[in-house]
Design a binder for these strands. Structure first.
Lengths: 153, 153
DNA sequence: CGTTGAAAGTCAGTATGCGTTCTTTCAGTG
DNA sequence: CACTGAAAGAACGCATACTGACTTTCAACG
């Protein structure tokens, strides 16, 4: 079993599992998941994005994002208004309630990140983040790569 | 958006996403997921385990594991036989086909792990694994912790 | 030996995550 | 301006994940 415990794939799955558990612990009472938080955050940063660009921004699968946006809309945190120039696209915006919620949870979300890295020494935290970012960035071909400097908004 | 891109939670989600994509690329043709591979591997290491101990060994949610085992059984890779001493439990074993498959995919699975870490220098790979293991180990309270030295088999 | 609390599995409900397909709409081309 | 290929969403199917409830069975205890 040591083979599995040492596999990067297994360790990454565990880290993801832990990340989700911590997020639920700190933010779950707001009825918000980490995925939904990322979507709200990105919509605030780029008011009026369409779903496809949003999916690229935060590296979500397009199909998955549909359901996420549906739930956010049902909770009255975002609206999907038709784009004037393109009748296929729908522009996404936060509602006042969505903006309020986002502000409320930013503290708790920061705490999640701190708790997540708490087992590492401060120096190791920086190293871990650097290596994780490097790993993700250099694998942008295999998954929906984020558009860092997209022509959005 | 830089805030999100630098969050450990986001980076870990990306790493998990990439890991899954690489696994599908290398092993997907065998109709096997990374989750199913872990289960098969652990069952081979501990023939006769029950589902609850298996879930602890590989850090799976117990409810989730039910469906995974069902699919493995449907593909004739494992059998669930009633435990003689405890009529609640079902002992898990590989079928010959399951054992064959596992051997077949071990090479490809190793390649997945190598590709996953390929963006890092050899020294950084070791560091990343060490830190990820440390992070996972020291968070064992918040999620189903693996029983490293369980009294199984 | 009967009661009781816990363990093993299952099931229902909700939320991702990804592949595939289909419709609608657009944009470039001849 | 008709045609074609591509883009944007929506919808369907499968596979995790996890919570909570429920049944069956066991084991410990008085």
């Amino acid at each position: 079993m040591q083979e599995i415990y040492g596999m990067p794939g297994h360790l990454i799955r565990r880290a993801h599992q832990i990340s989700g558990a911590l997020f639920a612990e700190e933010v779950g009472e707001h009825d918000l998941t980490s995925v939904q938080f990322s979507a709200l955050f990105a919509i605030r940063a780029y008011p009026g994005v369409d779903a496809t660009r949003l999916s690229a921004l935060i590296a979500f699968d397009r199909s998955t994002l549909g359901g996420v946006l549906e739930r956010l809309e049902a909770k009255d945190w975002i609206v999907r208004e038709p784009a004037p120039a393109d009748r296929r696209a729908k522009r996404l915006r936060l509602t006042p309630a969505g903006a309020d919620l986002l502000q409320e949870v930013e503290g708790p979300v920061r705490r999640v990140q701190e708790k997540l890295l708490a087992p590492l020494s401060p120096a190791d935290r920086a190293t871990f983040l650097r290596l994780a970012a490097q790993l993700a960035d250099l694998h942008n071909e295999v998954t929906p790569a984020p558009i860092r400097r997209a022509m959005v908004g």
